[in-house]
Design a protein around this nucleic acid. Sequence first.
RNA 1: GCGCGGUUAGCUCAGCGGUAGAGCGCCUCUCUUACACAGAGGAUGUCACAGGUUCAAAUCCUGUACCGCGCACCA
Length: 907
Amino acid sequence: MLPKVYDPLPVEDKWSEIWQNEKLFISSADRARKPFVIVLPPPNITGALHMGHALNNVLQDSLVRYQRMTGKEAYWVPGTDHGGIATQNVMEKMLKAEGRTKEDLGREKFLERMWAWYADCGGAILNQLRKLGCALDTGKDNVRFTMDAKRAAAVFEAFSALWKKGLIYRGERMINWCTRCGTALSDIEVEYEEEKSKLWHIHYPAADGSKGLTVATTRPETMLGDTAVAVNPEDDRYKALIGGKLKLPLTDRVIPVIADAEVDKAFGTGAVKVTPAHDPADFEIGRRHGLEILRVIDFAGKMTNCPDKYRGKSVQAARKEVVEDLKAGEFLEKEEHYRHSVNKCYRCSQHIEPLVSEQWFVKMKDLAAPAIKAAESEEVKFYPASWKKPFTEWLNKIQDWCISRQIWWGHRIPVWYCKTCSTAGLRFSAAGELSRVSFKGGAKPLVSFTKPGKCPACGGADLVQDPDVLDTWFSSALWPFSVFGWPEKTGELDYYYPTSVLVTGYEILYLWVARMVMSGIEHMGGPPFSYVYVHGIVRDKHGKKMSKSLGNVIDPLSMTGKYGTDAMRFTLLSQAAGGRDIPFSEEALIGGRNFVNKIYNVSRFIMMNLPENSGVIALDEKQLGALKVSGALDLADEWILERYARALDEVKACMADYDIGNAVSAVYRFLWDDFCDWYLELAKPRLETTDKARTLGLILHIFGGTLKALHPFMPYVTEELFSGLKAYTGSDKPFLLKETYPEGGASGGTADADMRKLMGVITQIRTLRAQFEIPPARTVKTLITSSDKSALELLKKHESYISRLARTADMEIAPGLAKPARSVSALSDAFNIYVPLEGMIDLEKEKARIAKETEKLGCELALCEGKLKNGDFISRAAKTEVDRVVLRKADAENKLKRLESILKDLT
RNA sequence: GCGCGGUUAGCUCAGCGGUAGAGCGCCUCUCUUACACAGAGGAUGUCACAGGUUCAAAUCCUGUACCGCGCACCA
């Protein structure tokens, strides 16, 4: 005897292993079939997968499996991402726990550790993806890594091509510097957070001893690097001072007052201290006016180039001291409370220092233009479409991309320098490693994948590589074609590129998606995918972002362990609609688990009824067709086939729109509401008769098809149950993924309408029973009458449905039946239903029921009458609508009349 | 400041021009031989607010409020 409750774990372990061993998910460039390709957004090898990954992967898996079953050569390309700064940070933390730093190890040893970590963590991630049921082949030769040899070749090719086109350059610019990570970041890697702070008003006296002026700042410590004060040229308060000199407090420097139209007269005091080295806006002012760039904060976030007392102090400490000293010197006019946003590193949340530094950049304007066009023309189409605008707007405002990172883990910049020729431009650390390069100092770049044999200028062989690595997103940007071996012209590349759809969260739309589109167009001549399915973020149940510090992280694997993978997939998918964020709670998984159990129990029910060794009994399409033609099918059979077809049609329509959530719930509703609650209940008695084989055949046909239909969404339970029924369904395919997705093609016959009539009657009788507290086990006598003879015939013909599902006995179905005394009544369509209840009847209760019903119908009638009296409605509304209202009115009138007569008889 | 999304049953959300829906929760009855992770029945909403368009508005338009998220500026 099968257990009553489904146990997912052994099933999942079994199938995930079999699927991998059988190489079920591998794809070959089969030119006879249309490809459907998704490249997996490669997870960073920073640790375990989180809920967001689970959602992302479950969505992709559903698409891939569905497309595979509808006949496409579906391929989901797996891989992992080295994850640059994020992963290096993980390693640094581990080293810290050992009491060491990466410098203790040195670059080479550190990288060895990183590769060992990749082997562990990368493997673990693939394992987790397998557990989620992902149709990814995780075999060694199929899994890519953003830093493996082929991807390294792609990175070099891209860098070199952009360099040759003059799109990559090295320059001194204002960049975002994370003092904790010790590296430059691109503009989109900075996050902003509102913080309470102060606005300090500082008086700068004039150099000649006159009054001077007052500036307002949120960063007093940067005054040590001021090289001017700017005012608006139209500002009458300061016009006289323009061109004059000010004495910079706390220093012995004198700085000019300059006029710049960008200065907002209304903000603060209307006078701006200008620190070109440490503020992007000031940098621009400095550039316009040829101001000196005086760096007072170094790469470690410590003060430098300033009076001794501040030197070497942190920015925070210096700020405090500077404010105190200003106060002591009576330069501080006031302190205002002020809220403003501070820049934070997206990887470590520490403050970002804007500083001027020499870095590698990619010129973006020319690359962005065709990408904007692709989005606007919908060559690349977004789901939901609302992402198109932010996407193009971001590209329109794009700035050059800082691609160099001062970390060790990543693709080393493929640029070499001759020690002899470039001495002035190179700086070495104490350990003898090249630590910084300056083109301003004369370093001459040689772009090469491997170390060049000799310097083309002096013939010397002493060449060193640029110490920096590339932004991790540089290699990610190439992913949709690097995975297929680009720049080699491989068969895979030719067959699979461009890919079909990219599934990703909106948080990396600019970091990743935009850059893939640009690189695809630049290097491959066309966008890397035609659709971008943008999903939301999985949040906690209060809508808060899950984070370790908040302690609200839900681990997907512990959830699948507790509720089963299929349950979690179902829950995520049904909530994923519309690309919005998903508030996720453990309780939500219960619904999914219950559904899985329901499916399992259908199978269990079927198994219990199957004759042993019967061979194939499921009906195929041909047999069904024949039965239909010969009229051998019962109304319920016709009905369930119609509902089944309609559900499948809905799935098809939804999937075409990437509306996976609604596709799943269409099958859910069909299986649970139609198939289980009505059809199986009606089929039960027939399983005791000579109709058994035919009924079982139909059940197997539909249930087998439903399992196929559900398989893309809930792969494990469907595979397990389908395989258990194979001997009876006659399937010759080893796996559901090899089956053809069932087709709908609902015909719109009369079965549904007829069945609705019966269901209405049944529901009414059930309601009466419940309201008059008739024990479920007890049968009741029931009379059904109507003036509609053909409708009565329908009931008469299917009397057994009613007696079975409403537990009636001695039913009388005939026209003109009088309401028996001491009976309760209900209306359904054209039917009057009477249930005699000697002794049990509560007259007042029945009267109240009928009164309530009468009131409802009265409202309905009034509504219809109101509409029909309205001349505008008659003349302007669609004719079908007017007809409908006329019918509704007639129906309400008719029912009211019947109720009235029932009430009269009620004594 | 600009933009995007949200505001519907206690909770989470679907519906997006023709009589308010689902799941969970709640109440009543039932361990009826697939399933109590179930079945049957029930209660519950001026669809944020104000205008407008329309014969008809939760649904379209405009504005307001509140919530969330981007982007920019914040000296």
